[in-house]
């Protein structure tokens, strides 16, 4: 009988809270990790552009992204043009984040003295916890060529200055490091310089990035044209780059055969060939500003 009492006393000692709860997981009582929460995937790209083309990434609401883009001259011109750096084409633009899946932007390029504007909207965004595996973003943009008329005596329609582009971006952040997107694109130019050129050009954009460290990523941005290529006139634009993030800035450094910095220009008017080493150095500089205070966020207590 004594042995039974000893066992019971032993059990009592074990069951006493002081002993049993030191290592007990109290948090699991209230913090039940049953269903994973649905959460939108962020930071698929460092910036809202892969290099030239739009990326699946959106600016947060209330943010303004001031973008300064440069495309230098041909590297193969050698030292006389300091490997192209003597010649620069630029685009200055402002992008605005409206909601988590809506943004718009305007810009002005020196190439063709072109003004451009776009709206980008994502009806579907990649999310964890049973959400969509991909982001689908739609972009619609317009360009206005503002070069003075070559022959002012002719009747010139304003509409002949206009171009349009439409894009559907389907992208996925496969891992922390790797993101890939496909972007079927249609570019319409109201007036093309040569009769043999097509007003409508269909292309497929293939863009991606591979993060090599927390702040540096390698990127590529290729647009394959299915029509509208005239031998000796234009070709498929391909850019290879590196994103460097430094606090509030993102630098996108790259080598490309394209000189244009809006969709109409780089899809339809890329002249240099990679096979001929007609390449240019270029960079995008992105500086983000918080225009509007975030409501309900981070109030002091």
């Amino acid at each position: 009988m004594h042995i039974v009492h000893v066992i019971l006393l032993g059990l009592l000692a074990i069951a006493t809270p002081t002993f049993s709860q030191q290592t007990e997981d109290l948090l699991s009582l209230v913090d039940k990790d049953g269903q994973p929460k649905k959460e939108f995937v962020k930071s698929a790209f460092k910036s809202s552009r892969v290099i030239n083309g739009h990326s699946m990434e959106f600016l947060s609401p209330g943010l303004m992204d001031f973008r300064i883009l440069h495309r230098f001259g041909l590297i193969n011109q050698g030292y006389s043009n300091f490997f192209g750096l003597d010649v620069a084409s630029m685009r200055m633009g402002f992008d605005f984040g409206i909601t988590r899946n809506l943004m718009l932007g305007v810009g002005r390029s020196t190439f063709r003295k072109e003004l451009d504007g776009f709206v980008k909207y994502a009806p579907i965004q990649q999310s964890t916890g049973g959400g969509s595996p991909v982001t689908v973003a739609l972009v619609a943009g317009m360009t206005i060529n503002t070069v003075p008329r070559a022959n002012p005596t002719l009747k010139n329609n304003f509409s002949s200055r206009l171009g349009y582009y439409y894009q559907a971006i389907v992208g996925r952040k496969f891992s922390e490091a790797f993101t890939l997107q496909l972007a079927p694109t249609l570019v319409h130019t109201n007036l093309v310089p040569l009769a043999a050129q097509s007003n409508d050009v269909v292309a497929l954009g293939v863009g991606g990035r591979f993060k090599v460290s927390k702040r540096i990523a390698l990127t590529w941005d290729y647009h394959h044209l299915f029509n509208g290529i005239l031998e000796g006139q234009n070709t498929h634009p391909l850019s290879l780059g590196m994103d460097v993030e430094t606090g509030g800035h993102v630098f996108q450094l790259h080598i490309s055969n394209a000189v244009g910095m809006n969709e109409r220009a780089f899809v339809t008017e890329t002249t240099g060939k990679w096979t001929n080493a007609d390449l240019r150095f270029g960079f995008n500089l992105s500086r983000v500003f918080q225009l509007f205070k975030r409501t309900g966020k981070a109030e002091a207590w």
Binding site: R294, K297, A298
Partner: peptide, 8 residues
């Protein structure tokens, strides 16, 4: 869950 005044 940490929230900041500046989104970036």
């Amino acid at each position: 869950g940490f929230q900041f005044k500046v989104a970036l």
